[in-house]
């Protein structure tokens, strides 16, 4: 295990940013969000959790797949080269780290490998960052439901714990070890630090968020059985205004749309986030829309995450980070809906 004094943290950021792309939390007007770091001084560690999820590092909101140009009636098209430089994402909260594994199952494990996700994921070292274990969790969070603690190091390549004066960095994987070994200026942590690290992880287990007994297999069947209960779905989703804030904030929502966008004979084929709550998400070319009503679309969201995803990939596609609830303009709470459905 390594450590670095907090006042030297910017040194660490500087070195990482020089080596390759570094993504870290930056405070903006809207709150803290992950951004590619240009200026090391921008990075902050004083935040509860980012407004939007870190998924944008591996799955950007908009990404060019092919660029093309039309000249004299002929089209020249080129696939966009994928990022191959080693990157680092720093400051990911334990629940969000789990979201990467869930997304892996979809982008890498569905029989087809998504090259856009893979190239970024393979080249990126994830530095997890424990929540402040002495503070209470945000009332919207519910990661305890999935058995996650506030300082679980699992899933990270390197896990970072903040103490009064220092940051403790423990490598959890070979990739993490390689990164830490390459940073010669880090101090070697002593036995006392090891103890503090272990205690933090343990204390993290005791941080309580909202929680419910949700067994993936049981809830998957349950939701299918209440699928036709229109009255229930209409009641719980009445407030939904069908925007895409929850989806765009969610670390495990991976739906995207593809569109060709061209200007003056030059353009690109892009893929960009889409949201199942949008009116035109399922709109077919014929004009028919299989899910014209809001409750049908929100039901799809809940059932996808808690039922279909379990059937297909064996796990619930939710980490309980609470972002959807926090960004929702009308405070719809997926946790309450699932909990209520579970009890029907």
């Amino acid at each position: 295990m390594k450590k670095i004094a907090i006042d030297q943290f910017s040194e660490l950021v500087k070195v990482l940013a020089e080596r390759g792309p570094l993504y870290a939390p930056v405070k903006g007007k809207e709150g803290v969000n992950f951004q590619a770091i240009k200026n090391p001084a921008d990075v902050t560690l004083d935040f509860y959790n980012t407004v939007l999820s870190p998924k944008s590092v591996f799955f950007p909101q908009s990404e060019d797949m092919i660029r093309y140009r039309i000249t004299h009636g002929a089209t020249e098209a080129q696939p966009v080269p994928q990022e191959s430089r080693p990157a680092v994402i720093l400051g990911v909260r334990p629940c969000d780290v789990r979201s990467f594994e869930i997304m892996d199952r979809h982008f890498l494990g569905a029989g087809v490998i998504d090259p856009y996700w893979k190239s970024k994921r393979d080249n990126t070292t994830v530095i997890g960052f424990a929540f402040d274990v002495s503070a209470a969790a945000d009332p919207a969070d519910f990661y305890n439901t999935f058995g996650y603690g506030a300082a679980d190091p699992e899933g990270s390549d390197v896990f970072m714990v903040r103490t009064d004066k220092a940051l403790l960095l423990k490598s959890m994987t070979d990739r993490g070890k390689k990164l830490l070994d390459s940073l010669g200026f880090l101090q070697v942590a002593g036995a006392q630090d090891e103890k503090v690290f272990e205690e933090t992880v343990k204390k993290g287990k005791a941080v309580r968020t909202r929680s419910a007994e949700i067994n993936p297999q049981v809830i998957a069947k349950k939701l299918v059985s209440v699928f036709d209960n229109g009255e229930f779905w209409q009641k719980v989703t009445m407030a939904c205004i069908a925007c895409g804030a929850c989806t765009y904030g969610c670390p495990t929502c991976y739906c995207f749309d593809i569109s060709d966008e061209m200007l003056f004979k030059e353009g690109s084929r892009k893929r960009f986030w889409d949201a199942c709550t949008f009116t035109d998400f399922t709109l077919e070319a014929s004009g028919h829309n299989p899910r014209p009503r809001i409750f049908q679309r929100y039901r799809q969201k809940v059932c996808h995450k808690y039922s279909y995803h379990v059937d297909k990939y064996g796990c619930i596609s939710c980490v309980g980070c609470g972002r959807c609830t926090r960004v929702c303009p009308v405070n719809i709470d997926i946790f309450s809906i699932v909990d209520e459905a579970n009890k029907l």
Partner: peptide
């Protein structure tokens, strides 16, 4: 520049009732 196009603004607006919206 910060806009993520979640369209929460138009959806929260009592006067935005067009179906479809010009953006769609």
């Amino acid at each position: 520049e910060r806009c993520i196009r979640c369209y929460a603004c138009r959806k929260a607006c009592p006067m935005c009732y067009c179906d479809p919206c010009f953006m769609d």
